[in-house]
């Protein structure tokens, strides 16, 4: 074991399918470099499992650089682990100590059923998006930017909302498994721009309706989502969505 490497005990949620019961299974891992990412540590463990003819742990991942939002894991009771402002793939093993026991569970929500092990089905987010998380305009050459002046503050707020990567950490963290932060980010991103104003009423109503239909909980303003969101989406977006929703319902 080279200097500084760690031995850890992992307790990982194993579940064969959504229909079967799952449980936490304990795996010791040895000689983990502190410079590995959390997912690389999983790769090492999975190679060991495969060489022992055991089935590897299934977990979602893609970009491994914090932009795709796939790497959903609740690590020691926190979405994406002990650090804030990052995803699991950006979490390094140096955030843990030699000898630590680490519990890893999937996102837990009625609307995110487990597919296998740590992978959950997040198509509920996609169905919400499909209800209005877009602008229906014909594509073509972009018009001259100066034709459409947008105040800098609005542009910044819209951009910040658009930073949401749809990872679902907000749902996983919320005591009510509420998707309000995600939906609010998607609504806000358009609500602030002239292009989005045209369809604003139908957008917020339909997206909220779909959110309710999917079985997410409602918001009790605990603020936990904002703390655990890797992209720093703020509660102001939820307030904006509530305003938009009220106004939309007053209009018709």
């Amino acid at each position: 074991m080279s200097h500084g490497n760690m031995n850890l005990t992992l307790k990982i949620w194993r579940q064969n399918s959504g229909k079967e019961k799952g449980q936490l299974v304990t795996y010791p891992v040895k000689d983990i470099s502190p410079d590995m990412s959390f997912l690389e540590m999983f790769d090492v463990l999975n190679e060991q499992l495969v060489s022992k003819n055991e089935s590897p742990i299934v977990f979602d991942h893609d970009c491994r650089e914090g932009i795709c939002g796939m790497c959903s894991m609740v690590i020691n009771g926190r979405a994406h682990g002990p650090k804030t402002g990052i995803t699991t793939c950006q979490l390094h093993m140096r955030s843990f100590k030699d000898g630590d026991t680490i519990t890893v569970e999937p996102w837990r929500a009625q609307a995110f059923p487990v597919i296998k092990d740590l992978t959950v089905d997040r198509t509920s987010f996609e169905r919400i998006q499909a209800k209005g998380g877009f602008v229906s305009v014909n594509t073509g050459t972009a018009q001259d930017a100066n034709c459409l002046p947008i105040p800098k503050d609005d542009a910044d707020s819209s951009f910040n909302a658009a930073a949401c990567i749809g990872c679902g950490a907000c749902v996983a963290t919320c005591k009510n498994a509420s998707a309000m932060l995600f939906v609010a980010a998607k609504v806000s991103q358009f609500a602030l721009l002239p292009q989005g104003k045209i369809e604003a009423t139908a957008r917020v109503k339909n997206m909220v309706a779909q959110m309710d239909l999917e079985g997410f909980g409602s918001c009790t303003n605990t603020g936990a989502c904002e703390i655990e969101c890797p992209k720093g989406i703020s509660l102001e977006n939820i307030a904006r969505m509530n305003r938009e929703y009220l106004v939309a319902n007053c209009k018709d």
């Binding site: 307790k11 949620w13 936490l24 609740v74 020691n76 009771g77 926190r78 519990t103 569970e105 837990r108 929500a109 009625q110 609307a111 963290t173 005591k175 009510n176 498994a177 509420s178 079985g215 997410f216 909980g217 409602s218 009790t220 936990a224």
Partner: peptide
Amino acid sequence: NNKARPQKYAVQNL
């Protein structure tokens, strides 16, 4: 809201 998370976490640090 309770129904929205039928399976609870084993460890949760809220």
